[in-house]
């Protein structure tokens, strides 16, 4: 049964695209057939993070409007042959997306993939609502700070109201992914801690991604962080999160880069 997963947050810059790429790659690494879809029409980024920006010919809008076939627009990842990207258009805007168009693309993707991971744009307007419209599962990305948490709360309200599953009386499965988390600063009260955020949002925790230079390093070279280094803290955190998405019980812990000399050495060598 294919799953449509939306990665969303409300607020911009919290790590939706990074998380989409990392979760998509991690799911593909565990032998699922995965498509990552960029809904951020006009401000596309997922192609860069996936390292596929030089190979984009057709995009989501072309397929949605029937100007291109889906197989022409899907870009196969160079590292994993069961991971595909459907890029967004950079030259159009979000009004080019229609509900019917998106529905057709999603239905077609559903026939070919196990996981369709939709990277939502920031905001609560058309692009964001269409990205979540046909989802079965939502990963709500939040940073441990109040404005991000409040925006995520707003998005959770929309997930429970404006999606097809909710309108048909179903229940959207929602998970919280807390990114850019610094355990030390949270302990010193400089950012919200995990319990604070969970108490406010009251949805289950999918994972905590530690703040790490590795994330920026990976995205600069166009590699999902889970493929860049298997042992870095964010990579392990995303891999655990992906396993939890598949229903595997993984004990919740916040991986750290500073655990020991061994981890650090391995991390360097792999980087």
């Amino acid at each position: 049964m294919p799953k449509i997963l939306v990665v969303t947050s409300g607020k911009g810059g919290v790590g939706k695209t990074t998380s989409t790429a990392a979760l998509g790659a991690a799911l593909a690494q565990s032998n699922h057939k995965v498509a990552v879809v960029d809904f951020d029409v006009g401000l596309r980024n997922l192609d860069l993070v996936m390292g596929a920006e030089r190979r984009v010919v057709y995009d989501l809008i072309n397929v949605a409007q029937g100007d291109a076939k889906l197989h022409q627009a899907l870009i196969r990842d160079k590292r994993l042959d069961n991971l595909y990207l459907l890029a967004a258009s950079q030259t159009r805007d979000k009004d080019a997306l229609t509900e019917d168009g998106v529905r057709r693309v999603i239905d077609e993707l559903r026939e070919r993939f196990d996981w369709i991971v939709c990277d939502s744009p920031a905001g609560i307007e058309r692009g964001a609502t269409l990205a979540m419209r046909f989802a079965d599962v939502a990963v709500v990305v939040a940073n441990p700070e109040v404005s991000s948490v409040r925006d995520s709360d707003r998005i959770i309200g929309l997930l429970d109201a404006k999606t097809e599953i909710a309108e048909n009386g179903g229940r959207m499965e929602k998970h919280l992914l807390l990114t850019r988390y610094d355990a030390g600063r949270a302990a010193r009260g400089e950012m919200l801690n995990v319990e604070d955020v969970l108490e406010i949002l009251s949805i289950p925790l999918l994972g905590v991604i530690p703040e790490s230079e590795e994330v920026l390093r990976a995205s600069n070279v166009g590699t999902p962080v889970t493929l860049h280094s298997g042992v870095s803290a964010p990579s392990r955190a995303y891999a655990d999160a992906a396993r939890r998405l598949c229903g595997v019980e993984v004990p919740m812990e916040i991986p750290s880069d500073k655990k020991g000399l061994l981890v650090r050495l391995f991390g360097r060598r792999a980087a």
Binding site: I124, D153, R154, G157, L158, I200, S202
Partner: peptide
């Protein structure tokens, strides 16, 4: 019986409102 999320508005001019859950900022 659900949390009242940011951006949501519960309006009940006729009587009491009982929320089983939290009422979020906003």
């Amino acid at each position: 019986e659900t949390p009242v999320r940011s951006g949501q508005s519960i309006f009940h001019p006729d009587g009491d409102v009982i929320v089983i859950g939290s009422v979020s900022s906003g």
